[in-house]
Design a binder for these strands. Structure first.
Lengths: 199, 199, 199, 199
DNA sequence: CATGAATGAGGCTTCATTCAT
DNA sequence: TATGAATGAAGCCTCATTCAT
């Protein structure tokens, strides 16, 4: 029992620190997100951050994993259960937008961490999950082509363009611009791009 | 007379520093590109950099402008002289790829600066020129729609996707992947996306 | 009753901590032997170490006393019961080597602590026991000279040289070099040095 | 001209810093010799130390080399030009004592650095020069034995004992004890030890 | 114009110790 | 007794910038 409570405290602190890190990174950027600021934001002393998380890099790593965990709950299921390639793309689009709407800050921070050249930032290339996203989309595109749903398209190119469209969605959500119909618009764009409407 | 020679020197120094900055940023990233390293790369003393450029931020600003100046010579003319919206998009695509092929380092550094959260980096949103690019593409898309060339598309969305496609091209050029036919592929993708082939 | 059991526990804990400290110091050195590491090695929590021992310095002090206690059992008796000065020196040499062979780690740590300038380390000069060793040897040398066994030698000098010889023995034991005959060799060296063979 | 003066400044600063480091290490020990203290002692700002010397470890390295340079001037020549092994040992003894008398602080610091387990300290085993000393003495002893000057002695053992004798001399010099005749005493001890007087 | 020496702020990390539970 | 969470001091290092020469 005692055991559980200590572990619970540590876990809660970790989560608290991860969330404070997200807030700070979102406000000042990765490079400027110092541990002092993060600990201040969390309302704890400087030392606690190094007591609970091995350092700055591991903290940022934890942030990435935290956001991925959130994402997996929202996006993944629908995408995988889709019957057709067209439906899979659509599921990914709407799932992503739903996720961004619910966790815009988390998603902005995730992007910021992947793009950052901060020495403590887990950068894009090293991360399995991000590379996976491109591969996954590319695979769907291949499948769609093989099954006659799509025209011949460069899968990685299409993946990059989809990612950009989703980033644009995130930007609008962030700017509080109305995004009603944006999912449908992106879906239409991808269908056109992939030649899914040719019949 | 003395003045003239000094001005010439000053200009040469500025250019030298800008080029050294580009090399260093391309190799170690924006955040790690310290003035010490840049001055070392330029083969000059630490002091000269602060003598000729007001500081780190202005130097990076100068880098951006230097690359834009290069870009304008290559890309802009064709785009503007294009008769149809479809041709304008095509001109932009092929012009950009030509530019990236010629100045890959410069383009990578430009992207790095725009994306970076380094306090001295002139970031994307603040920059007139970058916003202009999006507006320009969006305007072409509008014109294409008004003229019956394109279907109704969200201009900024299309612009973001085009940018992503071009970034993918830059990535492949950087990775020394064969990019023959990539311009055509992107052009085809944009035509499909914009509904330019519907007739 | 509770008291008794606690005292037993406390004593066991102290010993456990001292032994863990010895292991850690021997592996990473005095300066790097942090309480965290020592407690981890002992398999106990961080708190226990400050609960049972007043701090880092007292812990190291306890280490020294522990090793001295071991040493007294092995070395002292023979030395004191020796009939002649020559025999006393021989007893000390062979006793020491026997001790080092049995407790090399303990002896290395003792040396490390005496030599260290760590603020928590009980350093050589301050320590009664170590000064005693020198005096004891010097006294034996004096006695040997007075009794006509030895030539006139600077006692403290001889003591320092004997200590160095024994340290060399410890180093070889540590390096797993064969030390057969080394005791005799050192004994011969000291006899020559002290002029014990002049007859 | 200008060039020379700048280099001169840098060289002077390096030397100033090395000397300040020696003073501080001698007073508070290696582990407690922080860069703050050293810079304060040198009367310069914190930054200068990292401007002129790559870091703490390189500074200590520079200290070692500085002392070695001093030592080479005093000790080496006589030792090498000695005709017999006995004379070589004597030269080393008297040369060392002369050196310690002239630079006691430097020698104490050298010893402290070699013995220290501070992570920035260039430790004994790694250093060529120190290992050389033992080998050199051992070689002299071998030579003496081969030439019939000395009895059969373990060279490394004799080297260790000689070192201890010299350390004792340094300790007495430090304590301001009169060391008149100490050189002769050590020489006599080594002659006895090595059997140089057997004829 | 150019140099490079000097400064001091700011960041990360390690650690002994205290304390509530 | 024992735990482990929390603290804050102290150290090292990097770097943009200033300034005398």
């Amino acid at each position: 029992m005692g055991r559980v409570s200590t572990s619970v405290i540590a876990q809660a602190r970790r989560r608290q620190l991860v969330e404070a890190a997200i807030e700070v990174i979102d406000e000042v950027g990765v490079g400027a997100a110092s541990l002092v600021q993060i600990s201040r934001r969390a309302g704890v002393s400087r030392g606690v951050i190094n007591y609970h998380v091995a350092g700055r890099a591991p903290l940022f790593e934890a942030v990435v994993e935290h956001v991925y965990a959130l994402g997996r709950e929202v996006v993944a299921p629908d995408t995988e259960s889709a019957a057709t390639a067209t439906a899979a793309i659509a599921a990914m689009i709407h799932g992503s937008i739903a996720f961004y709407t619910r966790y815009p800050r988390e998603m902005r921070v995730l992007s910021a961490l992947f793009v950052s050249d901060d020495p403590d930032s887990p950068n894009r290339s090293g991360h399995r999950e991000h590379a996976d996203e491109i591969e996954r989309v590319a695979a769907i595109v291949e499948r769609g082509h093989a099954g006659g749903e799509f025209r011949a398209v460069d899968g990685r190119l299409a993946a990059a363009m989809l990612r950009a469209a989703l980033d644009e969605a995130l930007a609008r959500i962030t700017a509080d611009v109305d995004t009603t119909g944006l999912g449908a618009e992106i879906e239409a764009a991808m269908r056109a791009l992939l030649g899914a409407d040719h019949l």
